[in-house]
Design a protein around this nucleic acid. Sequence first.
DNA 1: TTCCTTGCAAAACTTTTGCATTAAA
DNA 2: TTTAATGCAAAAGTTTTGCAAGGAA
Lengths: 139, 139
Amino acid sequence: MSQGHYSKDDLADRLRACGINPTRQRIEIAHALFSRGEHLSADQLLAIVNDRHSETSKATVYNTLNLFADHGLIRQLSVDGSRAWFDSNVGPHFHFHDLSSGALIDVPVPDVEFARLPVPPPGTEVAGIDLVIRLRKKL
Amino acid sequence: MSQGHYSKDDLADRLRACGINPTRQRIEIAHALFSRGEHLSADQLLAIVNDRHSETSKATVYNTLNLFADHGLIRQLSVDGSRAWFDSNVGPHFHFHDLSSGALIDVPVPDVEFARLPVPPPGTEVAGIDLVIRLRKKL
DNA sequence: TTCCTTGCAAAACTTTTGCATTAAA
DNA sequence: TTTAATGCAAAAGTTTTGCAAGGAA
């Protein structure tokens, strides 16, 4: 789904398609998010964006990340309590979490299959499933 | 497993069994955690403990929660980015997360069955599985 | 005494917000 | 000119830490 299009124009189109006004800062943040297939924190984004081009403020990074997440362009992960991670892959998938390194690794949907899931409480329905498989070093 | 023993003596025994010196504050925090079957935040614990008995400081609440978690007496949950939740149920189980109310509801193990799980990366093994089923209001 | 625990305040860290400035249409 | 976006600094919220004081053995 529109992988590999990381030019400014393509990214601007992608933002517009979500109803987001494509500004310079937003395009740069989007580039950092989508050109790397990684999970990034707000701090990392700030460092990446300000390393490559001109100045972007911390507030703008946070505002932009929330904006992107609100429009379904990225997903915010709560994997450890220390900080938020932002995932440029909004398609259904799961995660390995390496407890020794802190690394997050994607787990594609076909690698997981549920034979049984609980029935949601009355009046509610499932909005999404977050699965995190914690990993430790094998001895 | 040792449910329903919430007297000071029983709680003290339970702490000692984990290698934790049972002080007054620790016993009160343990009582708040175990006598209710709920998921509690540090702030809620602080309020509960200081409502019933004498003063316990915020730092002691945090230190105690970390101590309990380090000794496997409770589990810290990362379910939303806003704050940590502490679960007095350390046995294997999963969670519903009601997005509209913020409520956390236990899902017992038998309600979930995995037909397939991914193979951990080389040199690692599975330390635990966190499953959070997000719920929204059904229309 | 000696060791452990607690409390307080301050610090650290992440995230949000208020507001003046800037950029854009 | 009018609106939207940005940057800065301050504020807010959660959690950790340093250190002096307190309590138990």
